[in-house]
């Protein structure tokens, strides 16, 4: 294999493997920046994948080429609604946020597979009729060498990078973002300044559901193209790792997700590269997790969580 082909395969698989991770990780950034730990990202992806696949199968004949995009919208809405459970439990009911997240994961998978079995009579849906396809970007595609590599991918991959930049702008350049972050650092101080802590946290958690659903929808409509219990297996947790490895920063999370996407694609196609053929593939598969632990331990830059992350806010308590 010549260098250019290898490079092309790597870049393309990195872009398509990381897009769902970027979306979901952005959701995690919003939630955790507001002080709500979200272990339920995995479940939110599951419910998003479920919603997108079912919608795609049901409405493909009516909507045609627009189906996967509308399905993504539906996945975002369902994901947002589903995450309300986590919001109610962890913000209003003062539940342990980690436990509530675990419950979200159980519920999403249970409910999704239950309904699939009920509706399709099997543990797996049929293939979706209208998945996403590689699209050539006009003009840019004609650039020699890099054009066919960088500008012939899923549109969702570009969308992910674009949304990450918007998320960065919203979190760090708008009053809304400042409020959201302040609620995660010191809720009491924020409350004294007249910020509604509960409202901000609800918004943040629902945003994480919207993004998680979007991530799941993208994953199901580009990579697996159907839904079963095995559709989302750990991608939500890789996204969570990306949140931490990216230091709770939207662009950092995007970079981490791109890197983890690369590691995942290397694990699958690595054996065809001479240098990587000797590396046992479990190391490549585990790379995101090992690196995250190292980052947390301070070996790769210090990763500090938002100060009030994981603590329910109880009005009037010090």
């Amino acid at each position: 294999m010549d260098v250019l082909t290898a490079f092309e395969i790597l870049v393309k698989s990195m872009l398509f493997a990381s897009a769902p991770l970027i979306f979901t990780a952005l959701g995690g950034v919003f939630s955790e920046r507001s002080g709500v730990v979200n272990i339920g990202l995995e479940g939110l992806m599951v419910i998003g994948a479920f919603a997108a696949v079912v919608f795609n199968i049901t409405f493909a004949s009516a909507l045609g080429g627009a189906t996967p995009w509308v399905a993504l919208l539906i996945a975002m809405i369902i994901g947002g609604l589903f995450s309300l459970l986590h919001a109610v439990a962890s913000v209003s009911f003062r539940a342990d946020q980690v436990v509530s997240g675990v419950a979200i994961n159980f519920l999403a998978l249970g409910l999704g597979v239950y309904l699939i079995k009920d509706w399709y009579g099997a543990g797996q849906t049929p293939k979706i009729p209208v998945p996403f396809y590689y699209e050539r970007i006009p003009l840019l595609y004609d650039i020699p060498i890099i054009g066919p590599i960088l500008f012939n991918n899923y549109l969702t991959s570009y969308l992910a990078i674009f949304v990450a930049i918007i998320a960065w702008f919203v979190l760090f350049k708008t009053p809304f973002g400042l409020r959201l972050r302040s609620v995660g650092e010191h809720p009491m101080a924020a409350d004294t300044m007249g910020i509604n802590v509960f409202k901000m946290r609800y918004i943040a958690v629902v945003l994480s559901g919207v993004f998680g659903g979007l991530g799941g929808g993208v994953y199901a409509q580009t990579i697996t193209q159907d839904f079963s219990a095995g559709t989302i297996t750990g991608q939500g947790f890789i996204a969570l790792a990306a949140v931490i490895f990216g230091k709770w920063h939207p662009l950092g999370a995007m970079g981490a997700a791109l890197f983890f996407g690369l590691a995942q694609s290397l694990a699958i196609i690595g054996s065809s590269f001479p240098l990587l053929a000797d590396v046992p593939n479990w190391i490549l598969l585990s790379a995101p997790y090992i690196l995250t632990i190292l980052a947390l331990a301070g070996f790769i830059g210090r990763a500090d969580a938002p100060k009030a992350n994981g603590q329910p806010y109880i009005k009037g308590s010090r």
Binding site: S92, F93, G110
Partner: peptide, 28 residues
Amino acid sequence: MPLQSGVPTELVEIVIAIIIFFVASSYI
């Protein structure tokens, strides 16, 4: 359950998830 009553196995996952939610929300 699926053999005797047609109910998919995953019902139990749902029940377990709900139980966890309520135990976690013990404050309420």
